[in-house]
Protein backbone atom coordinates (compact mmCIF):
# COMPACT_ATOMS: atom_id res chain seq x y z
CA UNK A 1 0.00 0.00 0.00
CA UNK A 2 2.69 2.47 1.03
CA UNK A 3 4.88 1.33 -1.87
CA UNK A 4 2.16 2.10 -4.38
CA UNK A 5 1.50 5.47 -2.74
CA UNK A 6 5.18 6.44 -2.87
CA UNK A 7 5.43 5.18 -6.44
CA UNK A 8 2.39 7.13 -7.62
CA UNK A 9 3.31 10.38 -5.84
CA UNK A 10 6.86 10.16 -7.21
CA UNK A 11 5.55 9.66 -10.74
CA UNK A 12 3.23 12.65 -10.41
CA UNK A 13 5.92 14.92 -8.97
CA UNK A 14 8.45 13.90 -11.60
CA UNK A 15 5.95 14.43 -14.42
CA UNK A 16 5.08 17.90 -13.13
CA UNK A 17 8.81 18.61 -12.95
CA UNK A 18 9.26 17.38 -16.54
CA UNK A 19 6.44 19.65 -17.73
CA UNK A 20 8.04 22.67 -16.02
CA UNK A 21 11.50 21.88 -17.39
CA UNK A 22 10.46 21.26 -21.00
CA UNK A 23 8.08 24.25 -21.00
CA UNK A 24 10.86 26.55 -19.88
CA UNK A 25 13.19 25.25 -22.57
CA UNK A 26 10.58 25.75 -25.31
CA UNK A 27 9.98 29.25 -23.94
CA UNK A 28 13.70 29.97 -24.09
CA UNK A 29 13.68 29.08 -27.79
CA UNK A 30 10.45 30.80 -28.80
CA UNK A 31 10.38 34.01 -26.74
CA UNK A 32 11.26 37.17 -28.70
CA UNK A 33 13.36 39.05 -26.18
CA UNK A 34 16.15 38.56 -23.67
CA UNK A 35 13.98 39.53 -20.71
CA UNK A 36 11.10 37.23 -21.67
CA UNK A 37 13.57 34.40 -22.20
CA UNK A 38 14.89 35.13 -18.72
CA UNK A 39 11.36 34.74 -17.39
CA UNK A 40 10.95 31.35 -19.06
CA UNK A 41 14.32 30.13 -17.80
CA UNK A 42 13.54 31.23 -14.24
CA UNK A 43 10.34 29.17 -14.25
CA UNK A 44 12.37 26.15 -15.30
CA UNK A 45 15.07 26.69 -12.71
CA UNK A 46 12.76 27.02 -9.73
CA UNK A 47 9.67 24.96 -10.62
CA UNK A 48 11.46 22.03 -12.21
CA UNK A 49 14.08 21.88 -9.47
CA UNK A 50 11.47 21.94 -6.69
CA UNK A 51 9.30 19.13 -8.08
CA UNK A 52 12.12 16.84 -9.21
CA UNK A 53 13.93 17.33 -5.89
CA UNK A 54 10.77 16.53 -3.92
CA UNK A 55 10.36 13.29 -5.87
CA UNK A 56 14.01 12.39 -5.28
CA UNK A 57 13.65 13.06 -1.53
CA UNK A 58 10.61 10.78 -1.44
CA UNK A 59 12.50 8.06 -3.29
CA UNK A 60 15.62 8.30 -1.16
CA UNK A 61 13.67 8.09 2.10
CA UNK A 62 11.16 5.35 1.24
CA UNK A 63 12.88 3.28 -1.46
CA UNK A 64 16.60 3.65 -0.82
CA UNK A 65 16.26 4.17 2.92
CA UNK A 66 19.09 6.66 2.97
CA UNK A 67 18.56 9.78 5.07
CA UNK A 68 21.92 11.21 3.97
CA UNK A 69 20.84 11.19 0.32
CA UNK A 70 17.61 12.94 1.30
CA UNK A 71 19.54 15.65 3.13
CA UNK A 72 21.84 16.13 0.15
CA UNK A 73 18.93 16.47 -2.27
CA UNK A 74 17.34 18.94 0.15
CA UNK A 75 20.57 20.96 0.17
CA UNK A 76 20.68 20.92 -3.64
CA UNK A 77 17.10 22.18 -3.71
CA UNK A 78 17.78 25.00 -1.25
CA UNK A 79 20.97 26.09 -3.02
CA UNK A 80 19.14 26.11 -6.35
CA UNK A 81 16.26 28.10 -4.87
CA UNK A 82 18.70 30.67 -3.49
CA UNK A 83 21.08 30.92 -6.42
CA UNK A 84 18.79 30.73 -9.48
CA UNK A 85 16.73 33.88 -8.72
CA UNK A 86 19.90 35.71 -7.68
CA UNK A 87 21.60 34.83 -10.95
CA UNK A 88 18.49 35.85 -12.93
CA UNK A 89 18.35 39.18 -11.11
CA UNK A 90 22.05 39.87 -11.70
CA UNK A 91 21.70 38.91 -15.36
CA UNK A 92 18.73 41.24 -15.92
CA UNK A 93 20.42 44.11 -14.06
CA UNK A 94 23.66 43.74 -16.00
CA UNK A 95 21.83 43.47 -19.31
CA UNK A 96 19.91 46.67 -18.57
CA UNK A 97 23.12 48.34 -17.46
CA UNK A 98 24.84 47.37 -20.70
CA UNK A 99 22.03 48.96 -22.71
CA UNK A 100 19.73 46.07 -23.64
CA UNK A 101 16.34 47.74 -24.23
CA UNK A 102 13.29 45.56 -23.40
CA UNK A 103 10.67 45.05 -26.12
CA UNK A 104 7.04 46.01 -25.54
CA UNK A 105 3.94 43.97 -26.34
CA UNK A 106 3.89 45.28 -29.92
CA UNK A 107 7.48 44.18 -30.48
CA UNK A 108 8.89 47.71 -30.38
CA UNK A 109 11.50 48.86 -27.84
CA UNK A 110 9.91 50.55 -24.82
CA UNK A 111 12.85 52.91 -24.33
CA UNK A 112 14.29 55.42 -26.76
CA UNK A 113 17.95 54.56 -26.50
CA UNK A 114 20.42 52.20 -24.76
CA UNK A 115 21.53 55.16 -22.64
CA UNK A 116 18.08 55.30 -21.06
CA UNK A 117 18.34 51.61 -20.17
CA UNK A 118 21.66 52.28 -18.49
CA UNK A 119 20.12 55.20 -16.62
CA UNK A 120 17.25 53.02 -15.41
CA UNK A 121 19.67 50.37 -14.20
CA UNK A 122 21.78 52.94 -12.39
CA UNK A 123 18.79 54.46 -10.57
CA UNK A 124 17.21 52.62 -7.71
CA UNK A 125 13.48 52.15 -7.61
CA UNK A 126 13.27 55.18 -5.34
CA UNK A 127 16.33 57.43 -5.46
CA UNK A 128 17.39 58.10 -1.88
CA UNK A 129 18.96 61.46 -2.66
CA UNK A 130 16.09 63.19 -4.44
CA UNK A 131 13.19 60.91 -3.50
CA UNK A 132 12.35 60.46 -7.16
CA UNK A 133 10.92 57.38 -8.73
CA UNK A 134 12.93 55.77 -11.55
CA UNK A 135 10.23 56.58 -14.09
CA UNK A 136 10.20 60.23 -12.97
CA UNK A 137 13.98 60.38 -13.41
CA UNK A 138 13.60 58.95 -16.91
CA UNK A 139 10.86 61.42 -17.88
CA UNK A 140 12.90 64.32 -16.52
CA UNK A 141 15.91 63.21 -18.56
CA UNK A 142 13.75 63.00 -21.68
CA UNK A 143 12.36 66.49 -21.03
CA UNK A 144 15.86 67.94 -20.66
CA UNK A 145 16.90 66.23 -23.89
CA UNK A 146 13.85 67.59 -25.75
CA UNK A 147 14.52 71.11 -24.49
CA UNK A 148 18.15 70.85 -25.57
CA UNK A 149 17.14 69.68 -29.06
CA UNK A 150 14.57 72.50 -29.33
CA UNK A 151 17.20 75.01 -28.21
CA UNK A 152 19.52 73.84 -30.96
CA UNK A 153 16.71 74.16 -33.50
CA UNK A 154 16.01 77.70 -32.33
CA UNK A 155 19.68 78.58 -32.68
CA UNK A 156 19.66 77.18 -36.20
CA UNK A 157 16.62 79.31 -37.12
CA UNK A 158 18.27 82.43 -35.72
CA UNK A 159 21.39 81.84 -37.77
Amino acid sequence: MLDWLVWGVSWILLLIGCVFVVTGAVGMIRMPDLYTRLHAASVTDTGGAIFISLALILQSVFVFGSAMAAIKVLLIMFFTLFTAPTASHALAKTALLCGQVPLGVDGKPILDSPEEATLLARSRSVDYKSGQDAVEILEETRRHKRERVQGQDDDGDDD
Binding site: V21, G24, A25, M28, L34, R37, L38, A41, T44, D45, G48, A49, I52, S53, L56, Q59, S60, F64, S66, A69, K72, V73, I76, T80, A84, A87, L91, T94, A95, C98, Q100
Partner: peptide, 30 residues
Protein backbone atom coordinates in the same frame (compact mmCIF):
# COMPACT_ATOMS: atom_id res chain seq x y z
CA UNK B 1 23.41 38.85 -27.53
CA UNK B 2 25.96 37.81 -24.98
CA UNK B 3 23.35 37.77 -22.23
CA UNK B 4 21.25 35.20 -24.08
CA UNK B 5 24.25 32.90 -24.19
CA UNK B 6 25.00 33.52 -20.53
CA UNK B 7 21.39 32.78 -19.58
CA UNK B 8 21.51 29.56 -21.59
CA UNK B 9 24.76 28.48 -19.96
CA UNK B 10 23.38 29.19 -16.48
CA UNK B 11 20.21 27.23 -17.23
CA UNK B 12 22.29 24.41 -18.72
CA UNK B 13 24.26 24.19 -15.48
CA UNK B 14 21.08 23.93 -13.40
CA UNK B 15 19.83 21.14 -15.64
CA UNK B 16 23.17 19.38 -15.32
CA UNK B 17 22.79 19.35 -11.53
CA UNK B 18 19.35 17.78 -11.84
CA UNK B 19 20.61 15.29 -14.43
CA UNK B 20 23.48 14.12 -12.21
CA UNK B 21 21.11 13.68 -9.25
CA UNK B 22 18.48 11.79 -11.27
CA UNK B 23 21.14 9.62 -12.92
CA UNK B 24 22.44 8.62 -9.51
CA UNK B 25 18.97 7.49 -8.45
CA UNK B 26 18.37 5.78 -11.80
CA UNK B 27 21.42 3.55 -11.45
CA UNK B 28 20.59 2.84 -7.82
CA UNK B 29 23.69 4.55 -6.42
CA UNK B 30 22.87 8.02 -5.08
Amino acid sequence: TLFDRLLAVNSFGTKTVLLIAVHGFMTGRP
